[in-house]
């Protein structure tokens, strides 16, 4: 057994120059960062499958009831949806800039871009709330009081709205969680917790934020842009 392994002195927590951000079970900062990043990518894979079930349901039902989906989809406010898409894309830009300035160790610009990201995320959620309210007023929420005026296949139109609320709701819940995490990160960035050497939380949160953004990039055309050619925007 002695020949099975040889041993060297463990290092990491025993070294003289102790890095306060280095957890005890890692050998060095590089390993720690790679670990955190891989963890986030694996998590995003999970998230992809989480949304995947809804996308599958969408494709099945849209394939079965194309007319119902066209008419119900045309009830969404494409202009508001487009504005919100722009807002979200801009928030991804500010997030990317935030990560960039974190890597430069620029605390002020990091905080500024994180706050901008927070604001844009907040605007997105506010607009989403406005749209939900609009649906409520027009009885477009599936259930007993559901109505779909002028829909050719009204019997199946509620499936579209079930998916609309399921998909955008799940997306919005991810935005809300991101909003909460951003608040914490802004506080920590303001306190100077992140340095050019260590800003892993900012970087992996960036991955998350971009992922949520990308999901919306797919949701917008699927839910808002079915058969819009040659039709008035409003």
């Amino acid at each position: 057994m002695a020949s099975h392994t040889s041993a060297i002195e463990g290092h990491g927590q025993h070294e003289g120059s102790h890095d306060p951000n280095l957890k005890h079970h890692f050998e060095n900062a590089e390993q720690q960062k790679e670990t955190a990043t891989l963890g986030m990518w694996a998590f995003l894979l999970t998230e992809l499958m989480f949304f995947g079930g809804l996308f599958l349901a969408y494709f099945v039902y849209r394939h079965w009831y194309p007319v119902a989906f066209i008419d119900a989809s045309n009830k969404t406010d494409v202009l508001v949806g487009a504005i919100n898409t722009t807002v979200l894309i801009c928030s991804s830009l500010t997030m990317a800039l935030g990560v960039h300035y974190a890597s430069k160790g620029n605390r002020k610009l990091l905080v500024m871009f994180l706050v901008l990201t927070l604001l844009l995320g907040g605007i997105f959620l506010g607009v989403k709330g406005y749209e939900y309210h609009d649906k409520w007023v027009h009885h477009e929420i599936p259930g007993e009081h559901f109505e779909c005026h002028g829909c050719r296949d009204a019997g199946h139109a509620s499936l579209f709205f079930s998916l609309y609320f399921g998909m955008t709701g799940l997306h919005a819940s991810h935005m809300i969680i991101g909003f909460g995490v951003l608040l914490v990160l802004i506080w920590q960035a303001w306190k100077g917790k992140f340095t050019a050497k260590w800003y892993t939380p900012i970087e992996i949160f960036g991955l998350y934020w971009h992922f949520v953004d990308i999901v919306w990039i797919f949701l917008f055309p699927l839910l808002y842009l079915i058969d819009r050619v040659g039709k008035p925007l409003l």
Binding site: F50, G52, E144, F165, G166
Partner: peptide, 21 residues
């Protein structure tokens, strides 16, 4: 696991809020 999670999520919406899937 995330696929069963979203499936149960839809079931809960259908059973609890009558949002049919």
């Amino acid at each position: 696991t995330p696929v069963i999670a979203v499936t149960l999520f839809l079931l809960m919406l259908e059973r609890g809020l009558h949002i049919g899937f």
